[in-house]
Computed example of a mutant assay.
Amino acid sequence: MSVVAIVPAAGLGTRLRPLSDAIPKEMLPVGRALALERIVAELHAAGVERIVFVVSPQKEAFLRKHFGESFGYALQPEMRGLGDAILQARALASGASRLLVALGDAVFEEPELGGLTRRVLATDSPISIAVQQVPRERLSKYGVVAPKAGTEGSTFRIQDIVEKPAPDQAPSDFAVTARYVLPDTLFETLEKTPPAKNGEVQLTDALQLLLRAGVPGSAVPLLPGETRHDIGGFETYFKAFVTFAMNDPEYGAALRTYLKETLQL
């Protein structure tokens, strides 16, 4: 099957200001590689070659200069949500039978590069979503999947998805985690998806429509040793940078020694 990866990277990065006023957050270094470089390496390791970045007009030149013309660049002129961002890539994803959506502000620490993405691609469901277990008190920050009865396991079937539920109303503790494989019919569904109260078109709402219409879906949990790192805010960005820097093959050992001495561990 033909797969096109769509990497939404148009966000304003408001939680990283003033840093993100000068550099797109997706182009910040995470260890010795830029965040988007790590995502591109992950996608290539999973066998995905066609990649479309969805960017704001202000970011387009920045990314084109760095990555060149072997990638697609779709513009999102207004920040109208993740669903709208994906919709802007429709023309450049022409001919794809499956869409791999990889959020541009999340990188993965994993024993095998691209391992999670390969597993998400390998399910036999039209909808395949990476998930991670999250403490219930934090579920209101995520989309949360509802497993089908009797199918919860290493990879399990899902019957529904809910955006940012109250902890006591969440259908499970499995939160959506930045990697999706979706059918090409998603574009038509996004066009029909009503905007949320804030005017944004949400991907979760479109997925809910597909799942409730009977389109099969699977959830692929992170395995031990696989960790999502968000780079959208300073606390999580700092943790991501330090984690990858400590694992650097050339300088990681020296950095770990320095941190132990500094923290008197």
Rank of each mutant, 00 (worst) to 15 (best):
V4M: 03
A5Y: 04
P18H: 11
D21N: 08
P24K: 02
K25C: 04
M27S: 14
L34A: 11
A35Q: 07
L36R: 06
L36Q: 11
V40C: 11
L43M: 11
A45S: 15
R50K: 10
R50A: 10
Q58N: 07
F62M: 13
F62E: 11
L63D: 01
K65W: 05
H66C: 01
G68I: 01
I86E: 03
L87E: 03
L92V: 03
G95H: 01
R98A: 13
R98S: 10
F108K: 06
E110G: 11
L113E: 14
L116G: 12
L116S: 09
T117M: 10
R118C: 01
R119T: 05
V120T: 01
D124F: 02
I129P: 14
I129T: 07
I129E: 04
Q132H: 11
P135N: 02
P135A: 06
A149C: 02
S154R: 14
Q169E: 13
A170R: 00
F174A: 04
V176H: 07
A178G: 14
R179W: 13
T185Y: 01
L186I: 08
T189G: 00
K192T: 13
V201N: 02
T204H: 08
D205E: 07
L209G: 05
R212T: 12
A213C: 03
V215C: 08
I231Y: 02
G232K: 00
E235C: 08
T236R: 13
T243C: 14
A245W: 15
A253G: 08
L255I: 12
T257M: 11
Y258E: 15
Q264D: 15
